[in-house]
């Protein structure tokens, strides 16, 4: 599948934003996060900034962005519509919580409910994003049980990495559950990613050129002539191919920068002073964000669509 920059930026940036919102909501409700105004302002600015940047860049993928509002209408059947509804609905509690955090400076009582709603909205939105891909049978690489946990965990750990950095930036001590939970979450995300790749590499084909044409009986089917001599929408959108060698290299980049390096940093963070922790946590957040962009690029570039069976692919 064509790795469109607008969609890669959308899913990675909004993923980090919703991950951060989720942790702010959960941590806020549990009273684990500092209620200082500066921290609140910076945290929500970053989270909503990520989310908004992502949503805006996704609009660049549309042929008619001015009709995007119509996407709120089909939530009964469409995961993309559900995602749109969840994304916009999450702004309400998130903005309210930002207000409470920075103006009221109080996260008790009803604010706790607002915080929980923010966390719920953030998680729901990422879940819907993942389901858009998970539900497409025509792309077996995406139609996988690992797609949803992968999206959720990557959003969670990128959000967590940025939260750690913000806490150190404002001279706060990160709460123990976050400090200790991060490495486990990174390991879980690493595991899911590895499992997703293994499945993609080993799964039996779901469709073949024989099943796509029904011409199998006399023997194997070969494409003799394509239907058109120039490129078309289908080929540009769905027949993107990446060399195996490049894919292997980019997978290693993903592993090191998304998982290995941030994990190593996460493990030493509890034992270093703030002067070291601040740049280290920034490095972890940046490295992880970059790694997720590479991972998402591969998520598209490595995925093969069944339409390629009509253009020379033997199986998908």
């Amino acid at each position: 599948m064509h790795p469109a920059l607008s969609i890669i930026l959308f899913t990675t940036s909004s993923g980090a934003g919703y991950g951060l919102l989720f942790l702010l909501g959960l941590g806020g409700a549990a009273g684990l996060l500092p209620t200082s105004r500066g921290f609140g302002l910076a945290a929500f600015a970053l989270a909503l900034g990520f989310v908004t940047f992502g949503l805006v860049s996704s609009a660049f993928h549309l042929g008619h962005p001015e009709r995007a509002w119509r996407a709120f209408s089909q939530w009964r059947s469409s995961w993309l519509s559900r995602e749109a509804v969840a994304a916009v609905a999450t702004y309400l509690p998130a903005l309210l919580l930002a207000l409470g955090w920075t103006v009221a400076g109080d996260l008790s009582g009803p604010w706790r409910l607002v915080a929980l709603l923010t966390a719920l909205g953030a998680a729901t939105t990422v879940f819907c994003t993942a389901m858009i891909y998970r539900s497409l049978r025509a792309v077996p690489r995406w139609h996988s049980p690992w797609t949803v946990p992968g999206y959720l965990l990557l959003a969670l750990i990128t959000g967590g990495a940025w939260l750690l950095f913000l806490l150190y930036l404002f001279g706060e001590t990160p709460p123990t559950p976050l400090l200790h939970g991060m490495p486990s979450a990174v390991i879980a995300a690493w595991f899911v990613q590895t499992a997703a790749w293994r499945r993609a590499d080993r799964a039996a084909p779901v469709a073949t050129v024989e099943s796509a044409t029904g011409l199998g009986p006399p023997g194997s089917v070969r494409l003799l002539d394509p239907p058109h001599s120039e490129a078309n929408y289908l080929l540009r959108e769905m027949a993107f191919r990446i060399g195996r060698r490049h894919a292997a290299k980019l997978r290693r980049v993903t592993v090191v920068s998304t998982f290995a390096l941030p994990l190593a940093i996460g493990l030493i963070l509890p034992f270093v002073n703030r002067l070291t922790a601040l740049p280290a946590s920034l490095l972890a957040a940046l490295s992880m964000s970059l790694g997720v962009v590479v991972e998402r690029w591969l998520f598209f570039a490595e995925a093969r669509h069944t339409v390629t069976l009509y253009y020379g692919a033997r199986s998908v």
Partner: peptide, 26 residues
């Protein structure tokens, strides 16, 4: 008139039966 040109339906069709109009973007 309702189509926003997101292209998701073309991804969902296993057969490649949908194509985006290059000028109208629907």
């Amino acid at each position: 008139e309702l189509c926003m040109g997101c292209g998701l339906c073309a991804w969902a069709c296993p057969y490649g039966a949908r194509e985006m109009d290059p000028l109208a973007q629907v």
